[in-house]
Simulated assay, not measured.
Amino acid sequence: MKKNALEILGTVALCGAFFAQPAPADDGHRHAKGYGKFEFALIGDVPYNEADYWKLDNVIAEINADKQLKWVMHAGDIKNGSSLCSDELFLDRLQRFSAFKKPFILTPGDNEWTDCHRANNGAYLPLERLDKLRELFYPVPGRTLGQKTLRIETQAHDPAHAEFVENTRWMEQHVMFAAVHIVGSNNGLAPFATRTADDDAEVDRRIAAAQAWIAETFAKAKAENARGVLLMFQANLGFELAKGSSGRKGFEEIIADLERETVEFKKPVALVHGDSHYYRVDKPMLGTISKRRIENATRVETFGADDVHWLRVAVDPNSDEVFSVHQEIVDANLEQHPQP
């Protein structure tokens, strides 16, 4: 029997280091006070297929058993792009994510709302699905999902951006974390038959809110002399593409903001996303003016879709790198589904 949202909430080896540039010489108090190391789990683009639900169960079991992990971050796309966007599916995902014993932070993906106009998705109105997502997955503004919850900031507390409960932020051991609602399908600009002016207006509001949240996050990080910043969003923004490319439509303003803020911040910045289903840790950001690699910016893309594994992100606020990423391959998920 399906549980409703309130019942669900109630029951609720290879590693890549970031090698970011060290802090500038005038940051004389960088190591004056030590902060504790910690780790968290990163997933995304999961679960995609019903046949792989058992693989997600294995991931959840591993993460729950690891006492080192402080929370779980999900980079969006909680279903594939050709399945129903029904309330029943959303409640199924809510129930599965509620099995995590640790705080669970989700940023929305395009598959669960912007692309729901597709016939094989149920021909929903995307904005109606977005409202339902916010109702189910962000029921208490400023509190995470998961059996153990975490109090965090939310942009919904800003009257200018009150609808954006999914844009969240918190600090741990002097490192800043934030989730920003930026999705694939050109950030929701992809055309579809029933698109209206309301859909266009939503994109404008969401981009403005994302820009404000990014600016405020970096401003707070600089004011508090944070050791590093990690931003999570769903979309692959097309960092490698030329400015003005079709793949960067809907993202240009945000990319420009991320470039400027990262260069000015000077310390390690992690840009975490899903979308492409291709695990990687690299440095794709080139300065628009300098044409040089922005060394303190590191992109982390999650496992996803058929690759049902997870990433362990280790955070050492007292190191120059701050972040390092370790892939956690779930051996059982490399096998065929166990026979009954």
Rank of each mutant, 00 (worst) to 15 (best):
W310E: 03
K291V: 00
T298G: 05
K283N: 12
E216P: 00
L286C: 00
D275L: 09
W213Y: 05
A297G: 08
S276W: 02
K291M: 04
L241A: 08
R260H: 13
V263A: 12
K283V: 01
V281A: 11
S290Y: 08
H277V: 10
R260Y: 02
D275W: 11
R227P: 01
I289M: 05
R227W: 01
P284G: 03
E261P: 01
E202G: 00
P268K: 11
Q234V: 08
V315R: 05
M285F: 14
N296T: 09
A221E: 03
V315G: 02
E240L: 06
V308R: 12
I214F: 08
D275F: 10
S245F: 09
G244P: 11
T288A: 15
G287E: 04
L271K: 07
P317Y: 10
N296E: 03
G244N: 12
L286I: 14
L311H: 06
T298K: 12
V313R: 04
I255W: 06
A242C: 00
F303H: 14
P268T: 09
V308S: 04
D204Y: 04
A221R: 10
A215T: 13
R280P: 00
N225L: 07
E216W: 07
F233R: 07
K283G: 05
A314D: 01
A223N: 10
P268N: 07
A210D: 05
K283H: 15
Y279C: 00
D275V: 05
E259P: 05
D275I: 08
N225K: 15
A235V: 07
R312W: 03
L286H: 09
V269N: 13
F303K: 03
Y279L: 11
V263F: 02
S276C: 00
L230K: 09
E216R: 15
K243Y: 14
Y278F: 11
E259A: 03
T217R: 09
T217S: 13
E295G: 03
K266E: 15
K291T: 04
V272Y: 12
R205Y: 08
R206W: 02
K283E: 06
V263D: 04
V308L: 05
L271Q: 06
I255T: 10
W310D: 02
D204F: 04
L311N: 14
Q211V: 04
A212R: 02
T288S: 15
N296M: 05
F218H: 05
L241S: 06
A221C: 09
D204T: 14
W310S: 02
G274S: 12
R293V: 09
D257N: 07
P268W: 14
E259R: 10
L271H: 04
T302R: 05
L237W: 02
E224C: 01
N225Q: 15
Y279V: 07
E224V: 04
M285G: 06
V313H: 07
M232V: 11
L311I: 15
H277P: 08
W213H: 15
F251M: 06
R227D: 07
R299D: 03
R260P: 00
R248N: 09
Y278H: 13
A226H: 06
V315L: 03
E261T: 03
V272S: 15
A219I: 00
E240Q: 12
F239A: 13
S245K: 06
A256P: 01
A256T: 15
N236M: 10
V300Q: 08
E295P: 00
F239I: 01
T217M: 10
G250P: 11
D306C: 01
F303N: 09
W213L: 07
V272E: 04
G250S: 08
R292T: 13
